[in-house]
């Protein structure tokens, strides 16, 4: 009979922890998902930016060796991600194919110039840097002229900036909500034990002694919640990969690793901190304050 009742009591205590763990893991899952999106958005914007570049038209009749040396120099620059050389011949063939007309035999010469397409590193993909770069390059004797799409670049930059700003605001907001939710859930579970906490103080237990079991339990709760949240996130990643046909690259293991570690840290720290402050609050309350 006693054993049966004790079992019941244990189950009751266990189920109250389960609800804390459950809400904690749901919140952590959202936080994890959001940080994954946030980290990937940087990658996505980098990807877009790194497809931006400029074209350098080279002067005609420059020996190929010089062209190659210039290309090598260009590739050594910090802003260069990659370069592509298009010879006079390639350019002519391409244009002929596009026009569907043999304009060389008509004009009797090709007016096209050899060129180098330069793709930029994301950090340099803005109009300011590009202007500086192109002005500098224009002074080079092999360069005929440089050319980039200023308007497109401006638009792209302002749009990604605005997007990441909103995403950041949204994330901060969601994180605050997550924190408030976790804090509330834990406080409620500690609140239900406020009389026990008070009694412990009355029979001579120090604050640390009272807090210790609560803190240990909160660490366990944090760990369990993080584990659940990580599993949920793995499921979500699999689903995203399946649905978006890998447009969104979420297979970067390093990135996912960072997110998982982040989730564990946030889970344990939030759970511990909320428990610490909640228990501390109830230790200090007097009888009258406890009942009010």
């Amino acid at each position: 009979m006693t054993k049966h009742k004790n079992k019941f009591l244990k189950r009751k205590i266990w189920s109250s922890s389960v609800s804390v763990v459950l809400s904690l893991s749901l919140v952590l899952f959202v936080v994890g998902l959001l940080s994954l999106v946030l980290l990937n958005s940087q990658k996505l914007s980098n990807y877009v930016k790194e497809n931006i570049g400029f074209t350098i038209m080279l002067k005609d009749s420059i020996p190929q060796v010089e062209e190659m040396t210039f290309r090598k120099e260009l590739e050594a620059e910090p802003y260069t991600k990659k370069t592509k050389y298009i010879s006079k011949q390639q350019a002519t063939e391409k244009l002929m194919k596009d026009l569907g007309e043999d304009f060389v035999s008509f004009l009797e010469y090709s007016p096209l110039l050899p060129s180098i397409d330069v793709k930029l590193n994301a950090d340099f993909a803005n109009t300011d840097s590009l202007e500086k770069i192109t002005i500098k390059l224009s002074k080079n004797p092999v360069v005929f002229e440089t050319y980039f799409q200023k308007d497109l670049l401006k638009k792209l930059n302002s749009n990604t900036k605005r997007l990441s700003f909103f995403l950041l605001i949204f994330s901060v907001l969601l994180f605050l909500i997550a924190f408030a939710l976790i804090n509330n859930t834990i406080r409620l579970s500690v609140y239900s034990k406020r009389f026990l906490i008070k009694t412990m103080g009355l029979v001579g237990a120090t604050n640390n002694f009272i807090q210790k079991p609560f803190i240990i339990k909160s660490i366990y709760q944090g760990v369990y919640s993080s584990i659940f949240a990580v599993f949920m996130l793995i499921g979500a990643i699999k689903l995203i990969q399946k649905e978006t046909l890998k447009i969104l690259d979420v297979s970067d293991l390093k990135l996912i690793g960072i997110v998982f570690v982040l989730m564990f840290l946030i889970g344990i720290l939030l759970s511990m901190a909320s428990t610490f402050f909640a228990v501390k609050k109830y230790i200090k309350l007097t009888d009258d304050q406890l009942y009010n």
Binding site: L9, I13, K193, F195, L196, K198, T199, M200, L202, V203, G204
Partner: peptide, 16 residues
């Protein structure tokens, strides 16, 4: 409080 033994009116036993 360790120097005292207190018997509370409402017992104050740890119910859990």
């Amino acid at each position: 409080r360790r120097k005292l033994g207190i018997v509370f009116q409402d017992f104050q036993l740890l119910t859990d």
